[in-house]
Simulated scan of single mutants.
Amino acid sequence: MTRSSTPRQQGFSLVELMIAMVLGLLLMAGVLQTFLSSKQTYSTNNALARVQESGRFAMEFLTNDIRNAGYKGECISALNNLLNENGSGYSADLYDLNQPITGKTGESPSWVTNRTAGDVIHIKYAANIPGVSASGNTTANANAIVLNAASGVAQDAIIIVADPKGCDIFQNRSNANASALSRGNGGKPGNKNSAKNNFSHAYDSSMEVLRLESASYYIGNGVKGLPSLRRISFTSGAKFDEELVEGVEDMQILYGIAGSDRQVDSYVSASSVSNWDNVVSVRVHLLLASTDTNVVPENQIIKFNGKDVTIQNRRLAQVFSTTIGIRNRLP
């Protein structure tokens, strides 16, 4: 009989284990580097997409209002003002549609109290009210305009009525469920005495019933404490301040001044406009920055308004620019 011996089992040596660990660490480092690079790329692309989306929204708000500045329906004559010019809160800057666009360079008008940067622009125009139409004729000395159905127009909204013969502005004192728009007493700024102040002329049922849009755009802090594009509206007579688009750091407004041929000769800041009737276009520059931090390798330096602006906390920034013609003043 022969005796067979089983060989002893042997594991990895210490050197082999160390080599395996080093190779594993190198592999993990490569995977981690790929993950971090992908995460950074995703964060940058996401921040860029949000900045571009915010820029488009901001420009859309501004473009729509600037383009329509001064619109008052079919009316081609001066607006007859039936608002109480001595009433609380009345200001020609807010309610006189005969001067539809004004602005401030690096400062605020009296009604803007929390501007943090940039210029301020104020725009006025008459906007359509869907589904609201007059029923029958309205005499010049009428106290109310009778409608075909409940108006849906809030009490104290500023109303403009117009046709090719003329146009009038007053404050609605009827409730939204009333089938009439009245120019009675009360409200801010309120109406002139209707017994002593008539409409500019008698209207028939084809009259346009419009709502005054009167709003200031400016840069101020939003609900999260970040710079935002904000709007103060006086459509209902009272001041209504709202945040529109967050991440808007600065805004520069330039105004196109036209000569006798109604062609733009130059673009100037609000402080250099001597006659607002000569403004036929507006050039808007917005500086936007991402709300997310650490999305670019280092702080960006952006050229804006002739200066180098450093964007802190490694946020992504972009400048948006557009030129908008005022339709009612173009040749």
Rank of each mutant, 00 (worst) to 15 (best):
209 V>G: 11
187 G>I: 01
178 A>P: 15
163 D>Y: 01
270 A>G: 06
202 A>S: 14
248 V>T: 13
167 C>H: 07
156 D>F: 12
242 E>V: 15
192 K>T: 06
160 I>L: 13
172 N>H: 07
270 A>K: 03
183 R>P: 11
180 A>G: 11
241 D>V: 04
222 G>H: 02
157 A>I: 02
278 N>Q: 14
259 G>L: 00
265 D>R: 00
212 L>P: 05
218 Y>E: 06
249 E>T: 08
232 I>T: 08
236 S>E: 10
172 N>M: 05
245 V>A: 07
234 F>V: 05
186 G>E: 08
159 I>V: 15
251 M>G: 12
161 V>L: 12
162 A>L: 12
251 M>S: 09
179 S>N: 14
242 E>T: 10
185 N>I: 11
194 S>D: 11
246 E>P: 08
258 A>N: 00
272 S>L: 08
205 S>K: 10
277 D>P: 06
152 G>P: 03
267 Y>E: 11
261 D>E: 02
251 M>D: 09
178 A>T: 12
165 K>A: 14
167 C>N: 06
193 N>P: 06
256 G>N: 08
243 E>Q: 13
255 Y>E: 00
161 V>I: 15
182 S>P: 03
177 N>W: 09
236 S>F: 05
225 G>I: 05
197 N>K: 06
268 V>A: 07
184 G>Q: 07
191 N>K: 10
224 K>P: 09
151 S>A: 13
269 S>G: 13
197 N>R: 14
262 R>F: 00
193 N>L: 13
271 S>M: 09
182 S>M: 08
280 V>M: 00
157 A>Q: 06
239 K>N: 07
274 S>I: 03
264 V>A: 00
198 N>S: 15
252 Q>W: 04
242 E>P: 04
200 S>D: 15
195 A>E: 14
213 E>A: 08
153 V>R: 00
277 D>Q: 14
244 L>H: 04
230 R>T: 00
243 E>P: 04
205 S>Y: 05
155 Q>P: 12
270 A>Y: 01
151 S>E: 13
229 L>Q: 01
178 A>F: 11
221 N>P: 02
226 L>P: 10
179 S>H: 07
165 K>H: 08
208 E>G: 10
268 V>M: 06
195 A>F: 15
267 Y>R: 06
174 S>V: 02
276 W>S: 08
166 G>C: 14
249 E>G: 02
176 A>I: 06
229 L>H: 01
181 L>D: 13
152 G>W: 04
252 Q>C: 09
161 V>W: 09
194 S>V: 13
196 K>R: 12
218 Y>G: 04
